[in-house]
Write a protein that binds this DNA or RNA. Sequence first.
DNA 1: AGGTGTGAAAAGATTCACAGCA
DNA 2: TGCTGTGAATCTTTTCACACCT
Lengths: 236, 236
Amino acid sequence: MSAEPAAHRVIPGATVARLPVYLRALSALATAGTDTVSSEELAEAAGVRSAKLRKDLSYLGSYGVRGVGYDVARLRDEIEGELGLRHDFSLAIVGMGNLGHALAAYSGFATRGFAVRWLVDEAPDVVGTRIAGLTVIDFDGLARECNDSMIGVIATPPDAAQDVADRLVALGVRSILNFAPAVLSIPSGVEVRKVDLATELQILAFHQQHPRLDPKALDRDALDPKTDDLEEGAAP
Amino acid sequence: MSAEPAAHRVIPGATVARLPVYLRALSALATAGTDTVSSEELAEAAGVRSAKLRKDLSYLGSYGVRGVGYDVARLRDEIEGELGLRHDFSLAIVGMGNLGHALAAYSGFATRGFAVRWLVDEAPDVVGTRIAGLTVIDFDGLARECNDSMIGVIATPPDAAQDVADRLVALGVRSILNFAPAVLSIPSGVEVRKVDLATELQILAFHQQHPRLDPKALDRDALDPKTDDLEEGAAP
DNA sequence: AGGTGTGAAAAGATTCACAGCA
DNA sequence: TGCTGTGAATCTTTTCACACCT
């Protein structure tokens, strides 16, 4: 037996980082009216190998049926539950420069379950203005609104980032998405993810300068019609 | 011996992903007038452990001096060289919606060595308009300008992403930064990095729901970056 | 002393390959 | 028959610990 619904299972970080991708693929399948999917098909849609997909899903429990595949709606719901998407999160974007502005308006940001609710800036001439339908507040204003489902988004210049992080932590924020190219010092118990555009570009630059002398790219087409392999995995 | 300047050394993907962070820390130190730094100090500034830093740097060669540390300017230059930042790259941002607009104007994007040079969109009412000092062009326009140092940035809605990727590849682009929440099918030889905001938020949501029963959280506060993640590291 | 460079051990992630169930 | 779930093998990344150099 192994089909335990809830468990003290420890899900590897690399797996967690892929769950959102699986979730997206499953939502697309559900929308398309598909109700059962094999690991092979889902893996293809998610850009991973089927063995990896099955291993990942096995950490959640046994939600597949041998000889058949996975129930799309069921699996989607399980992953949503695992990711904690059953309740909504509110985003507080700090720093209303170009990037903060864009994030406030960026619809891709308002994925199901995440809504931009507060825009924060300390500049007196910015506080009180309206951006994307919200009024910009300062940290005092944010303190009054703070609750458990708040996620902080740092979109300030790098030199202000640590200070902003400290303030967010002081408000009780436990999840931070950091767009500022700065290393943050954060107490344990608070999770930070960083999105760093310059870093991504530099990694691309590296690979462009050191073309991967594709290890075994020749035999690929012999085995498999599709020669596309792309990225991979992650990070804890 | 081991102080070979250039080598056929294979640098692990995880290491490559950290070089930009070291580079930033070194630039800051150089600006501050520091000319020598120990692995301990640099690691602290970069948010990693010193052993990891030393191991990473050892893949580049022996640029440190025992009992002393690393020469800041020298190490910075070596990393720049390794990352291929000796020559400049030009960015072509495709998709002039909210996000594309913001990226065009985002100064953090114009890190040394990377300049936004082309803005691309296919909508007739957008082509020809000026954004952030550049005139928006279409793919035909881009085809005329294409060169070897071009990096494509996809900032379109997800359903257009694959088509845009195909066109970029057809133009000879070998590096793509993808902001669209879609899995791209790409021929080998082309490198794709993805930046996916919804995924990052969902990973944060997961950790908020499953608080890491801090294994040994007593020690130090800062560090323990992951990311990559987005993940992710190198490639199959 | 003081701090780098690196083998070797440990931890983590991916892939293989197949038993076992529908 | 067909496809999941998973132990075992493999590969990658991190951490340890210390020889070695200045």
